[in-house]
């Protein structure tokens, strides 16, 4: 592997180390996914289940970014990587937040609100 952006060989970075990093990422992803299923099957209360699954999802994102996409916040590329992450988070927040804002408002005007004020998407399903 060469150092990012230079084409120079990095002596510390051997093929073994690279495979190890991928393997760690793979195992961690498996555990986090399996863990989410385990939480769902467990007897915890619903809010605990949701919180734990969300947490597992977020950790999973970090694992992917670090181990598979080689994002790092130290070294030559840290600034670019940081900008990239911030920009992505910003756009995703706009899209997800905007959707929430718009659809919740529409839902409210359609008298669709569920008990917690969020739009309820299963009106006549059952």
């Amino acid at each position: 592997m060469s150092r990012p952006n230079t084409g120079e060989i990095d002596p510390k970075d051997t093929a073994r180390a690279e495979i190890r990093s991928y393997a760690i990422g793979f195992v961690a992803s498996l555990l986090l996914t399996g863990g989410a299923f385990a939480v769902h099957l467990s007897g915890l209360s619903v809010s605990w289940k949701i919180a734990l699954i969300c947490a597992a999802a977020l950790v999973q994102i970090v694992v992917h970014l670090r181990k598979f996409l080689h994002l790092s916040f130290s070294g030559e590329q840290s600034r670019e990587d940081l900008l990239l992450v911030l920009f992505s988070v910003c756009l995703l927040a706009i899209m997800a937040g905007g959707t929430w804002y718009v659809m919740a408002d529409l839902g409210e005007r359609m008298h669709q609100s569920g008990m917690d004020g969020a739009p309820m998407h299963s009106m006549s399903a059952d």
Binding site: T99, V102, M103, P119, S122, M123, S124, A125
Partner: peptide, 10 residues
């Protein structure tokens, strides 16, 4: 069945 076509436009 709980669909919401306005989300498509969104």
């Amino acid at each position: 069945a709980g669909g919401n076509m306005m989300n498509y436009a969104n």
